[in-house]
Measured scan of single mutants.
Amino acid sequence: MEVRTIKVFTTVDNINLHTQVVDMSMTYGQQFGPTYLDGADVTKIKPHNSHEGKTFYVLPNDDTLRVEAFEYYHTTDPSFLGRYMSALNHTKKWKYPQVNGLTSIKWADNNCYLATALLTLQQIELKFNPPALQDAYYRARAGEAANFCALILAYCNKTVGELGDVRETMSYLFQHANLDSCKRVLNVVCKTCGQQQTTLKGVEAVMYMGTLSYEQFKKGVQIPCTCGKQATKYLVQQESPFVMMSAPPAQYELKHGTFTCASEYTGNYQCGHYKHITSKETLYCIDGALLTKSSEYKGPITDVFYKENSYTTTIK
């Protein structure tokens, strides 16, 4: 009895394709271990004539594949690729409408935090270190965002349907971005203890939790000093293409032309909904596939993004 075979390709990165001759009487799992086709788990399936010449994702289970996976995804987590594939199996079914010149995501599976993050990423200057993220990001900007969303979920250790947080998501993504040249110098002034300067680099240099107003941050924000008295913390120097200011959701007025974009969060910790506000020729609110415009805006804002380049204080 002759062994019926077909020729397929296996890959971990969709760049390096490895030619395989597979036995049609055995499952993919018996031949390769966990195997995925377009995100779908085909591990328990036997090869079919229609699979001839198709590319299958496999887990990096030998040295060659491990090197290829690390170079593309910059992670050695053995569960990463499987999590990416199972997320992709959902995100490829989502709709990605162009809204006001940006790629958004039609609401499904509690994905409003991903839509808000995706919209924000198209408006701030950011370059990702893992080629996987950078490639998928370019495709997302062009309207094909399924891979990018699935990668975000995998890097953030999230599953489809789980509630997510924009600030946490951005923080994970910033860790995989090139923020080497970003720098922030802060000064804390206390009447009792004097003053202390701190220099922050990388992710810490672009994120701040405690106030939404970048102007206020430049002037000074009140913080408790270690001595128990009130101290003032203010920005001395900022070198970065953008800054992200966050605070627990509270009524906040966004003035046209003073910011790049913002995240609105309605609801409580267990259950809520994100919308995205962007400042173009007027203010726009993007909620999944829905767009509304207004000249002014007041609502429960939790993150505001500002364009920056270089700032030095005039406070002496």
Rank of each mutant, 00 (worst) to 15 (best):
N16V: 08
F128I: 06
Q98I: 14
L121I: 12
K316H: 15
T19E: 15
A205L: 03
V243S: 04
C112F: 05
T282Y: 09
M85P: 10
T169Q: 00
A231V: 03
C271A: 13
V3L: 13
K218W: 08
S50Q: 14
A262G: 09
T116Q: 00
L118M: 04
Q134G: 08
G53K: 12
C112D: 05
V236W: 10
V21C: 13
K106C: 11
P248L: 10
G82Y: 09
D165H: 01
P300H: 09
T278W: 05
Y311V: 03
E281Q: 03
T211V: 13
L119I: 04
V185L: 06
L121G: 04
Q20I: 10
Q175I: 03
C285H: 06
T199W: 03
D23H: 12
K54A: 13
G267N: 02
N157L: 01
P78H: 09
K106T: 13
Q237F: 12
Y72T: 06
A289N: 03
E281L: 04
F32Q: 08
P241D: 07
Y137T: 03
F9C: 10
F242N: 03
A87G: 07
E204G: 06
Y265V: 00
P241V: 01
E144S: 11
G39A: 14
K219Q: 13
T282A: 11
V42T: 09
H74E: 09
D165Y: 01
L254E: 04
E264C: 04
Y28I: 02
S79N: 10
V236H: 05
E264F: 09
D109K: 00
T258P: 00
A177F: 01
I6Y: 08
K106H: 13
Q251I: 15
M26A: 10
F259W: 04
T76P: 11
M244F: 02
N111R: 02
D165V: 03
D38P: 06
G53S: 11
E281H: 01
D63S: 10
D303L: 00
N14I: 08
F259S: 02
K106L: 11
V185H: 05
T19I: 10
F242M: 02
N129W: 14
L173P: 01
P249Q: 04
E71F: 07
P249R: 05
Y57A: 07
K255V: 12
I315S: 15
A262L: 02
E264N: 01
Y208P: 01
R167K: 05
G33F: 05
F148Y: 05
G194Q: 07
Y84C: 04
M85A: 07
H90M: 11
N14Q: 11
Y138L: 14
G288D: 00
R141A: 10
F56H: 03
T226M: 11
T266L: 06
I15G: 09
N110H: 04
A136F: 08
A115P: 02
Y234S: 08
K298H: 11
G53D: 13
K92F: 12
S50I: 14
S104E: 00
M24E: 13
C227E: 04
Y96V: 04
Q20P: 03
Q98G: 02
K158I: 06
T169F: 02
E71K: 12
G82D: 12
Y172H: 12
G267D: 01
T120Y: 10
V206W: 01
R83C: 06
N49W: 09
T312I: 11
L173G: 02
H48M: 13
A69F: 15
Q216T: 07
D77H: 07
L179Q: 00
V8Y: 04
Y28H: 08
D135C: 07
Q197L: 09
N14R: 09
A262M: 01
A145C: 06
V160L: 03
G29Q: 10
L121H: 04
G29I: 02
P248C: 06
A177V: 06
Q216R: 09
G272S: 01
K229P: 07
A150E: 07
C225P: 01
K275S: 10
T169C: 13
A40S: 12
